[in-house]
Design a binder for these strands. Structure first.
Lengths: 289, 289
DNA sequence: AGGAAATTTCCATTTTTCGGAAGAGTCTTT
DNA sequence: AAAGACTCTTCCGAAAAATGGAAATTTCCT
């Protein structure tokens, strides 16, 4: 009945300004203020960690007075801090958000004891990560005691990201993506050579993912960095989806790839399976019967 | 003439109003929308990582339609994700903000090689942290290879927080705080017993801080947890302010506190001094001359 | 010191937001 | 399986909150 829906033009034509900061969600049901305020946070990058009002206003195309109002709000809330030079940088409070996000799935909480146990038994560094777009995000990590492991330490910790295509965890996680999402991820990927065996063609990568899905685990043979091996196994949730990957990495001077797969692979898979079980996954689910 | 400047006291109100927490800082120059939107992010805690529109609306006292508009904005920007059950949780994108904040001071970047070197030379875990309110925030960490270190591993990583009063780094950082800030921190502190020697009276803590400032470094003798020792040294910036603390921690079964102080203390101080130098600090500053 | 540039405040205009109510789904109960 | 109860989502007029130009203030550079 209220089919007419009025011809109220709302704000559809915001003018010729096509590129508004980040996305163009110019729909009335979105909050412009929130969008702008968060865009300000996004202006602070490792390369440009300290910004003044004018810098932000110019980058976002907003007036200085408007920018200023958002900035002091962010300061009051602890998301920004004002340094000596009257400029601003990110406040330490935002780290809490990051930690909350890492823990939000409950994944870390459930997995940690198992990762720790695997590390104890094998003396190799054990990692847990999830897929976010075309990158993997480290959620947890149990580091080896062994000397020599530092050779393969890339300064990774929970919160770190790595491209998915050149890591065993990334390949594993991509392999279990629904077709549509996998396509999307593929389209936004750049396959840069990072190690001797990096897969640099999308065709080869697609074949590799098929093999990974078949095998049930993934191997990284110097695709990320020279002399670095790793193997990964999948963690599934109650809905039988692969939600994370567990991984063990080692320098080639410590163990051959074959030995890593043969001797430690079973332990890794066992650990991954037990985490899956913890998340409610059942191997032979006859719930429908 | 505008001496009066209204009765609004600029920003002097940082003091008495401890927390408008979720209510509103009802000054016209703040952005209410941004405030509300960010309050939504703050609703997601490790204890309650998954929330529906109604949960958020109730907690913040906002209408559901308003809440919904903010939430879909946050989803569009990647700060929230919608799970299967129509509920929402923090998006992985916010981890980037957290990492940016940790790196924003440039502290980690400058310090990391020195921490790594100290770990190599001593085989003990080395940490770097800053003070945020009454807590310390771990910025970087170089973990020991040694077995047995796991006994003292409290699951800490960059982004983790610990109360300042029962850690060597916290005591060191508080000791060098300007008087006014130190008072504020003291007022918001709860001194709970965490280890055999935890300092539980503010008077005793104040005296301890005086000694720490005198000595130039801080010691933790089972104040955080049983059988856990640590020592800390200060890192200063160009303006001669103490901006961070470097620390080494060990289980008492591995080394006595005396030995830790005598044998490793000098190395720790040396490392801290070199980081300070990297940040532009000069011991004998005659710049005024 | 003096001038340029940036930050911060002010204010009338109007756009964006607010929230009740209605429309869709979804899950629970009978 | 159908009705009921609940939550999520959309719509819309009313109204509050945001906007940006200009002025006042502070800081920085020469």
């Amino acid at each position: 009945m209220p089919r007419t829906s009025a011809n109220n033009s709302k704000n559809s034509d915001y003018g010729q300004e096509p590129a508004w900061s980040i996305p163009s969600l110019r729909e009335p049901r979105y909050s412009q203020s929130l969008e702008r305020g968060l865009a300000i946070l996004g202006c602070f990058t490792p390369e440009r960690p300290v910004l003044g009002i004018a810098d932000i206003a110019d980058e976002l195309g907003m007036s200085r007075s408007t920018t200023h109002r958002y900035v002091i709000t962010l300061v009051a809330l602890g998301y920004l801090e004002q340094g000596a030079s009257r400029k601003y940088r990110l406040g330490l409070r935002v780290t809490d958000l990051g930690m909350s996000a890492l823990n939000s799935t409950g994944l870390r909480e459930h997995s940690h004891p198992y990762l720790e146990e695997l590390r104890q038994r094998t003396s190799y560094t054990v990692n847990l990560s999830v897929l976010d777009g075309s990158e993997i995000l480290y959620v947890d990590r149990a580091r080896s005691f062994r000397r020599g492991q530092s050779k393969i330490d890339l300064g990774l910790h929970p919160g770190s990201r790595l491209p998915a295509y050149c890591t065993s965890m990334g390949k594993l996680l991509m392999a279990h993506l629904p077709e549509s999402e996998q396509r999307e991820v593929f389209s936004e990927m750049k396959l840069t050579k990072r190690g001797p065996n990096t897969i640099t063609s999308k065709k080869a990568l697609r074949e590799e993912l098929d093999e990974v899905r078949e095998a049930g685990f993934a191997v990284n043979d110097e695709e990320l960095a020279p002399e670095l091996h790793s193997i990964s196994a999948p963690v599934r949730n109650e809905a039988r989806e692969v939600v994370a990957a567990v991984n063990m990495a080692a320098h080639s001077s410590m163990i051959s790839l074959e030995e890593l797969v043969d001797a430690l692979g079973p332990h890794l898979v066992s650990t991954a399976d037990r985490i899956s079980a913890r998340l409610g996954y059942r191997r032979n689910d006859e719930s429908k019967a």
